[in-house]
Simulated assay, not measured.
Amino acid sequence: MNMRFELADAKTVGITGHVRPDGDCVGSVMGLYNYIKKNMPNIEVDVYLEQPGKEFYYIKNLDKIKPIADETKEYDVFIVLDCSDIERIKPFAQCFLNAKKTICIDHHASNSNNAFANNNLVMPNSSSSCEVLYGTLEEDEIDKDIAECIYTGIIHDTGVFKYSCTSDITMAIAGKLMAKGIDYSDIIDNSFYKKTYIQNQILGRALLESILFYDKKCIYSAIYKKDMEFYGVDGKQLGGIIEQLRLTEGVEVAIFLYETGMNEFKVSMRSKKYINVSSIAVHFGGGGHVRAAGITMQGTVHDIINNIGAQLELQFSAIDK
């Protein structure tokens, strides 16, 4: 896919990503927005997204994000990034449905057979949607501002190049982005690692109350709404907890849950080497990657862990044979 070709006849373009946008979502959405603004100035382009976290303050044109959809508008092209299901763009889905042409750029394995847009570029072996997006752009048209966005997405979805999704292609692209003059160390420190004092407190609580199970091969922790209200945080401030759980010695699978409603939890799962957490997430209606996946589930924490545990048991049993 070549972005210039896809937008050759477009006068209006809309862009969005999934709800609760993470670094790859923010990076890919804003990277494409800045690319079009710089290189195709005759195109009227709107970007729709839930407000990203403050850690992405350095990204150019972040203030141009529209949190509410203009459902009366009919875009020539509407582009969805880092999203495997139209349900995950629900606040802006009408803009997608109104559009004359739709495009999806993604890297989630659960999207491989979905194909909800007119044109779908889904590359499950890529580290991130930002990596996929990079391949659609003209390299000499990527400036420092665009490079910062794409680099952001890559470091977030690779865990700063340490996850198994990182490839030699990922590293080559990262090198080319660094050559654009970005302050890569600041991007890593300030958007990925930096935590507020309150975030450190709630991280400490989550670790203190974590529980090992399945012969200490698995670990989980949960944060309830009352705890989030006490600390004055929402889901956006809970990043990093699942990663710290995953680093526990001897653990293959980490699970982190936070309450989003009455007996409703957002569940994140990570694995190290053997367990396919994406297949577990898909089983319960979610999605993601082999080593990183998520789902919203109903029930008590006990119920949810038991249900996920049954699926883990199937995979562990197959490995042990």
Score class of each variant (00 low, 15 high):
residue 6 E to V: 09
residue 17 G to C: 10
residue 24 D to R: 08
residue 26 V to C: 01
residue 30 M to F: 07
residue 32 L to D: 09
residue 40 M to W: 03
residue 49 L to Q: 06
residue 55 E to F: 09
residue 61 N to Q: 08
residue 62 L to I: 09
residue 67 P to M: 11
residue 69 A to I: 11
residue 72 T to R: 07
residue 73 K to E: 12
residue 75 Y to D: 15
residue 76 D to A: 14
residue 76 D to K: 04
residue 77 V to C: 11
residue 77 V to E: 13
residue 78 F to Q: 02
residue 85 D to Y: 01
residue 86 I to N: 07
residue 88 R to D: 03
residue 90 K to R: 12
residue 104 C to R: 05
residue 106 D to H: 12
residue 122 V to P: 05
residue 122 V to I: 15
residue 128 S to I: 04
residue 129 S to P: 12
residue 130 C to T: 12
residue 130 C to E: 08
residue 133 L to C: 13
residue 134 Y to D: 10
residue 143 D to H: 00
residue 146 I to V: 06
residue 146 I to S: 00
residue 153 G to D: 01
residue 161 F to E: 02
residue 162 K to V: 15
residue 163 Y to H: 04
residue 164 S to K: 12
residue 172 A to I: 13
residue 173 I to N: 05
residue 175 G to R: 05
residue 177 L to K: 02
residue 180 K to T: 03
residue 184 Y to N: 04
residue 189 D to Q: 06
residue 193 Y to L: 12
residue 195 K to Q: 09
residue 205 R to V: 07
residue 207 L to V: 15
residue 217 K to D: 07
residue 217 K to I: 01
residue 218 C to T: 03
residue 221 S to Y: 03
residue 222 A to M: 13
residue 222 A to H: 06
residue 224 Y to W: 08
residue 224 Y to A: 05
residue 226 K to N: 15
residue 227 D to K: 15
residue 227 D to E: 15
residue 235 G to E: 08
residue 236 K to H: 09
residue 238 L to P: 12
residue 246 R to N: 11
residue 246 R to F: 00
residue 258 Y to F: 15
residue 264 E to P: 01
residue 267 V to C: 03
residue 272 K to A: 03
residue 281 A to C: 10
residue 282 V to P: 07
residue 284 F to Y: 15
residue 287 G to E: 01
residue 289 H to T: 03
residue 291 R to Y: 14
residue 292 A to M: 06
residue 293 A to G: 14
residue 296 T to A: 04
residue 305 I to D: 04
residue 306 N to G: 02
residue 309 G to E: 09
residue 311 Q to W: 11
residue 318 A to H: 14
residue 319 I to P: 11
